[in-house]
């Protein structure tokens, strides 16, 4: 089996594994829709007060909410990705087994996480988005190109999201109990990706900073492509740079961690 096919199989496994939790999927769709509703009304009040806040009109702001709910689980920016499992394997020492597999540790987990993300996008993302489109006035692009460009940006967002969470999970090699770190990471990811408030609404220097951070690749970038407010190619470049930098950092940390495991004898 070629390396490419191996990772495709791993990704398919990730997809299937998450697809088995049918009740959990339905529950997640329900919860995402409920949170979407709360945010939509809040944003409506906000944009009533200040039309064109952050350069969005109301329909665009509402669209932003439902894109956020649709991508919430996919990008796992509030937790729920493979990082919890990886941390557990590191903690229990099972990761030693992974290291001796004839596959690259990072690619292996990336493939699993992409499979998971793919399922979450279809299983959990579509319904809240369609619900939003049916009941609220949304700014949907008319041309297919924009939809495709959006999906491209989502794919890159998945890479960046994984790269961040992989780095977080690797801290388990050094910390006994990683729950605190992981929660901190989710929290930062959730806030800085713009789940609470679009990043272009953040004022002044704070806004400049959060928009330059990797988390803005997660939700803000695809949303702006979708809403036609950002040039897809420029957005891709921004996301790709972060993906490369963070994945490379992940490899370096992984190498250091592996040396540690080898020295300690597992």
């Amino acid at each position: 089996m070629g390396a490419g096919r191996l990772y495709v199989a791993v990704a398919a496994g990730g997809f299937r594994r998450y697809a088995t939790y049918r009740a959990a999927t339905v529950a997640g769709v329900f919860t995402n829709t409920a949170f979407g509703l709360i945010l939509v009304y809040t944003y409506t009040a906000l944009w009533d007060e200040r039309p064109h806040l952050g350069g969005y009109d109301l329909a665009q702001a509402v669209t932003y909410v439902w894109i956020g709910q649709a991508l919430f689980k996919t990008l796992a920016n509030g937790g729920g990705g493979v990082e919890t499992e990886l941390m557990e394997r590191i903690r229990t020492g099972d990761v030693a087994v992974d290291l001796y597999r004839p596959a690259d540790l990072q690619l292996w987990w990336l493939a699993t996480d992409l499979g998971r993300a793919g399922f979450e996008l279809l299983g959990r993302g579509v319904v809240p988005f369609v619900f939003g489109a049916l009941f609220f006035d949304m700014a949907l692009p008319a041309d297919v190109i924009t939809w495709l460009a959006f999906l491209g940006s989502v794919a890159l967002a998945m890479l960046v999201s994984f790269a961040i969470r992989y780095l977080v999970a690797l801290t388990a090699f050094w910390l006994m109990d990683g729950t605190g770190v992981i929660q901190m990471a989710w929290l930062v990811g959730w806030f800085c990706s713009g789940m609470l408030l679009p990043l272009n609404v953040f004022p002044g220097a704070l806004g400049e900073v959060v928009r330059a951070l990797p988390w803005s690749s997660l939700l803000q970038a695809p949303a702006d492509v979708f809403l036609g407010r950002a040039d897809p190619l420029g957005t891709y470049a921004f996301q790709a740079v972060w993906a490369v930098v963070l994945l490379a950092a992940g490899r370096m940390v992984q190498a250091a961690a592996t040396r540690r495991v080898v020295v300690q004898g597992g």
């Binding site: 009740a23 959990a24 529950a27 997640g28 329900f30 919860t31 949170f35 709360i38 809040t42």
Partner: peptide, 19 residues
């Protein structure tokens, strides 16, 4: 398996009431 449903009422509830 549907534990997440209650998040809509607990975390969702407290978020709702903040506005």
């Amino acid at each position: 398996d549907a534990a997440e449903v209650q998040n809509a009422f607990t975390y969702g509830g407290t978020t709702l009431l903040q506005y």
